[in-house]
Amino acid sequence: MTAAQKWIAFRTILTREIRRFTRIWLQTLLPPAITISLYFIIFGTLIGPRIGEMAGFSYMEFVVPGLIMMSVITNSYSNVVSSFFSTKYQRSVEEMLVSPVPNYIILLGFSLGGVVRGLMVGTIVTLLSLFFTDLKVTHLGVTIGIVLCTSVMFSLAGFINAVFARNFDDISIIPTFVLTPLTYLGGVFYSISLLPEFWQGVSMANPVLYMVNAFRYGLLGVSDINVTWAFAMVILFAVALFAIALHQLEKGSRLRS
């Protein structure tokens, strides 16, 4: 395939991905908007004032960056995992496998589809947050950079989950048992300085903590951890996941008999 043909193939996959999640917006875009709004109402408006300040900000201000990041993470991941798994399940993945599209284009197309959904939901949630609090951006580059890298990383992770999945249970196991605990314990709702020293140490092993804090640093200018270190780690994870996903595709595992 020529570079121009590869570009067309890539655009085709990306367009189809975007068409998919916008067609079923009732399942993809609306639920996170509702869930996160509930978080805003409960933690921000109802309980928030009783909690008092967190890291020098009102609880609402503190929790908003965490909730935006949480929605980006879950939506990037679940877009790719459900889209690629359903392609596999309906066997329409064969349409791509019999075509000359290189594997890395397939991977890039699906991952970017997840990134678009993640960012779109992130934007919706950010706009909703404006009803509850003023949003200020302290470091624009850090804010955008970390959202992008995080979204890419979780889209790739979702892709790998879909490749290994044999049934619908397999695509909900990782989100339920791994992703949700990691995000809930990843500094979305609290600063780890509240934790005893031992649990602070344990938290440092949670990659989500770095992303959430780097994002919070971008918006509020405060972070529990080193932001450079956060970027390095997210990028490293993304590269590793890309390599693993591509290797699985090249091997054709669970795709070609």
Binding site: K6, A9, T12, R16, R19, E95, S99, P100, V101
Partner: peptide, 15 residues
């Protein structure tokens, strides 16, 4: 129609 156009896209055919 989308199925066909998508398939053509995988083969690198312009829209």
């Amino acid at each position: 129609q989308d199925i066909l156009i998508t398939q053509a896209g995988y083969f690198g055919l312009p829209r």
